[in-house]
Computed example of a mutant assay.
Amino acid sequence: MQVLQVQLEIRPDPAEVGRARRWARSRLAGSGIGADEPLAETLILLVSELVTNAVVHTGCPAVLRLSLPGGGEAATVRLEVADSSARPPVPRHAEGDETNGRGLELVDGLADRWGWMPEGAGKRIWCEVDRCAPGASPRAVYPAYEDFAYEAV
């Protein structure tokens, strides 16, 4: 399997979050992940959350990296954000109407795996999302949920 690795340098500016989302969308489309696939929206939300955390909480430049499987087959998409702040990520739990504190909870809920590691003087936060084979039934991929119905609101 061929894997395409691409990266984008991020300035410590909140406007960079939108640029990172646009950049990631174009890279996903170029790798065969269609904009209408649920995987694409999940990955864009993960990009948004991790880049926002890097920009807002570190005030340092960062690097966004995507590792994308080629050929549209079942595989894992990996997203990484590396920054020069040694401060580890701290998951928080937002209460009620609070507008901050949900980012890493979203990452934990949306990604199949995530974590972080020290890198040089800073750190790298990563997450992975498994891509289903084209035409695969969600029941085959998520058998524990075959009897559940859900709606995103």
Rank of each mutant, 00 (worst) to 15 (best):
G96I: 01
R65L: 13
G32A: 07
T76W: 08
Y145N: 05
L39M: 06
R22P: 05
T99K: 06
R11I: 02
D130Q: 14
E105K: 11
G71V: 05
E105V: 08
N100C: 12
E128M: 14
R102K: 07
L28W: 02
W116M: 01
P14I: 06
L45W: 00
V90R: 11
A140H: 12
A82H: 11
A149C: 09
G115R: 01
T42F: 01
R92W: 00
C132M: 14
A149P: 11
A62Q: 08
R124I: 12
D147S: 10
R87P: 02
D130G: 12
P38H: 03
W116C: 03
P12C: 01
L45R: 04
E49M: 07
Q7M: 08
M1H: 08
E37V: 00
E49P: 00
A133Q: 05
A15L: 14
L79E: 08
W23H: 06
V55K: 05
R113L: 11
K123N: 14
Q7T: 04
P61S: 12
I44N: 00
G103W: 00
T42W: 02
R27D: 10
S31N: 00
T99H: 11
G30W: 07
D97S: 09
G70P: 13
V129N: 01
S48E: 10
V129H: 01
G115I: 02
L106T: 15
R113M: 14
P143F: 15
T58M: 04
L46W: 00
G96W: 00
V107F: 15
P38N: 03
G115N: 01
E73D: 08
R19Y: 10
T76Q: 09
E146Q: 11
M1E: 04
E73C: 14
A86H: 11
E16F: 15
V90A: 13
A111C: 12
R131M: 03
P12E: 02
R102F: 12
V47E: 01
G115K: 05
G59Y: 13
L28T: 00
D36W: 03
F148L: 08
L45M: 09
D97T: 14
Y150D: 11
P134D: 07
W126P: 02
D130W: 12
C60Y: 10
R139H: 08
P134N: 07
W114Q: 03
R102I: 07
E119R: 15
P14V: 06
Q2R: 07
R22I: 04
L46Q: 02
V6M: 03
S31R: 03
R124W: 13
R65N: 08
G34C: 02
L45V: 05
D36E: 13
C132N: 13
E16A: 15
R113E: 13
A82P: 04
